[in-house]
Amino acid sequence: MSITNTSATIIQPLPAASSNWLRDLVGIAIILAAAIVGYFLFPNNLALLTRMIAIMLFVLSLDLVTGYCGVATLGHAALFGAGAYAAGIAAAHFGVTEPITMIAIGAVGGAVAGLVSGVVILRGHGLAQLVLSIAIIHLFHEAANKASNYTGGSDGLAGITPDPILGLFEFDLWGRTAYVFGIVLLIVIFVLLRILVRSPFGLLCRGIRQDPVRVSAMGASVKRTLIKMYVISGVVAGIGGAFNAVSTQVVGLDSLSFTNSAEALVMLVLGGVGTLFGALIGTIVFIGVEDFVSAANPFHWLTIVGALLIAVVLFAPKGLYGTAAALVERYRKGGK
């Protein structure tokens, strides 16, 4: 009796927990290595890499609702743009130029936008949900356009001049400070999200994606859980938007556009949904290819990006990371 008990409880719990942390550490190491390589390979193009970081945060936030909860949305830029405008308006109109405070304000802005769009979008299912999300992004876009006293309308919001970080590191012309700041933000958020997705709450969200009826038969509220995830997603997207405002010192209406939403979804699908790693890889590949191809062939670059997407969706439907992970898994099983 006692033997079966101990064997049952000790079996495997420890290896699972430590392998999780190992993967996190590997993830951090890879991000750091990629950041350093990027820094030395493209010293004159740090602005592009910095934009990549902002978009990575945005795509990570989309992965939370789409990859982990199964909510289809084409309006996620509302959360990103809300964060960008919240931080930008605080700096340009209210003199809040301390960068970390600006990021925090962006997080709050994103959370509020997440709450609003979550409450609206989650009223629908399937196609209705998708249409609601498109409506949301157009409404946000139009609201920002009309409130031009605060947002600068279609001219964009300029006059954002963040202070040195912690009073020590000034934002330089080459964008080195912004780049390092972004990498630090990305790593912190990535680790927090890894903790989030394997928490009981993350498990509940995965359950909802697979069968909401079963989840409610367990006595859990599907709607409340999803709205909570939407708010968390808003915090992450808002931080991404605020970081974009801090690093570029402008906020444009395009941050609240349908195109921005759709591109984020494309990047996520390209990298692979529901893994967090996929969101990072998809963003790098998409923006990297876009930048490279548009410089190499300014006339047909969109065609080439389109062809790449079709190739990935047809031949690697789980996305780049998902397909690679599946191959590794198969190789491991074959090796045993």
Binding site: A17, L196, R198, S199, P200, G219, A220
Partner: peptide
């Protein structure tokens, strides 16, 4: 997950059931 839900712990955003 069912146990966590019953105990009102399914909303926790940190830690793992393991």
């Amino acid at each position: 997950l069912a146990i966590l839900q019953r105990e009102g712990k399914s909303g926790r955003v940190a830690g793992t059931f393991q």
